[in-house]
Amino acid sequence: MQHPQQDQNSTPANEAEAISRQSDCLVGQEHREGIRIDLFLAQTWPEHSRAFYQRCLSEHRVLVNDEHCRRADKVWPDDHVVIFWPPEKDTKLVAEDIPLDIIMEDEHVIVLNKPPGLVVHPAQGNMTGTLVHGLLHHDEEAFENMSDNTQRPGIVHRLDKDTSGVLVVAKNLQARAYLKDAFKEQVTEKTYLAIVIGCPDEPVGLIENKIGRHPVNRLKMAVVEEQGKLATTRYRVLASANGCSLLEVRILTGRTHQIRVHFSHLKHPVLGDALYGGCPKDLPCPAPRQMLHAWKLTFPHPANGVMRQYMAPLPEDFQQTLAALGLPAIGMRPKPLNPPVPPLANDDETDE
């Protein structure tokens, strides 16, 4: 097998620790046509991502038949694979006092209105200041009990950092398992409001195709012909003005960046979405971020299976953008009506 040039220091930095934390296996006969080593590792030890194993390969932590290999190399039946696991990092979450806009909370779930700019859970580049850290501060006992190495206690679905709106979080392991199944089986309903550039040709439409990683820009997703996952989006045009349209969008699947990718593919990107072409020089109205808001969420409650719907009012930046474009203020929280004050009873009136 071909392998990269290396010196004696290219083996794991702490050899004693690496040897004490290693795993090995033989490649099975089901891979008679060969399989990429990074894919084989991800299938054999699925607790980590394929990207994790690619990093292990680049750090020379994987041996195949006692030789280092590259991530594009293939392994074959009866090849002996050894991986030296990297040292475990301290993944303990620390509670942070982050304000939460709570729509509803009980002993099973908490429904929130996530503001734009808030990351849902820790990830590379955002290890602090996330919604998860705020949840730990809000109810440390509940979310500490669900903490694991994924650093996503209670999280059953996500919203992008700059997408605002309604989000449900589980407060115990049983609720988390129940809601994960509900999202997986598509018994939930997720409805968004989006401001897009231009106006789709059809006032009501269905977008259905495959979404996968962009072939060039790995930060983006894209509509692809092969090796993607089916994504289905329904939309309805609510209003159009000044070169933009307000859409009601319902996603039947939950692919990464699904709405942003689909409308960029239609040449009507979400206004303010720099990653997918929503910030042209001739913008009809400057937008501080992508104008996408998770408006309604319907899900079966873990306690009894009864369908519940919750709505998140529009944040101020979305309202301001609608007003600047002359679009209707749909999704606003109605102002409370002051009930009439009943007249005071006359002193001479008596109860019957």
Rank of each mutant, 00 (worst) to 15 (best):
I251K: 12
L219W: 03
K184V: 00
P77V: 08
N113P: 04
Y310H: 15
P115N: 05
R250G: 08
T188V: 15
W76P: 01
P339E: 11
K210F: 15
Q43N: 12
T150E: 04
H268G: 08
A72P: 00
P12Q: 09
P200G: 11
Q227C: 05
Q5L: 12
R250E: 14
D101C: 05
C279F: 03
K74R: 14
A16G: 07
G305A: 05
A294K: 05
Q124V: 06
A324R: 11
E17D: 13
H60L: 09
H133Q: 14
E208M: 12
H262P: 01
E225T: 14
K210L: 15
L219Q: 10
V196R: 05
G165I: 04
Y192N: 06
P315Q: 01
K220G: 04
Y276P: 02
V249I: 15
F299Y: 13
L271Q: 05
G28M: 03
N65R: 10
N304M: 02
V111K: 14
K74G: 02
P343Q: 04
K89N: 00
C69A: 14
G212P: 09
K89G: 00
H80E: 14
L118D: 10
C25D: 11
K229Q: 15
T233L: 05
F84S: 10
F84M: 09
A222L: 02
G165L: 12
P286A: 12
R70H: 03
H293V: 10
P328Y: 06
K296R: 15
Q320N: 13
M311K: 09
R70T: 09
L39A: 10
E225W: 07
Q309D: 04
M1D: 00
D38S: 07
I195V: 15
D73I: 06
T91Y: 08
D273F: 07
R260L: 03
F263D: 03
K281T: 03
D79H: 11
A231V: 04
A13E: 08
K89E: 09
S10W: 02
V81C: 13
P302V: 10
L297Y: 12
S245P: 09
T128V: 14
N338Q: 15
H257P: 06
P339W: 07
L238I: 15
G198D: 01
I211N: 00
L179W: 08
V111R: 10
V132W: 07
H268I: 06
E59D: 13
T188A: 04
Q43G: 11
N149P: 00
I197T: 05
E30Y: 02
C244S: 15
P12I: 06
H48L: 08
Q320M: 10
F299Q: 11
H214W: 09
E30F: 01
I251V: 13
I102Y: 01
L283D: 04
R21I: 02
V109N: 10
A175L: 04
N209Y: 01
L327N: 00
P340F: 07
E15P: 11
F84V: 09
P4G: 07
L219P: 00
E208D: 15
L252C: 06
L327D: 02
W295M: 06
M1A: 09
T191A: 02
I207C: 10
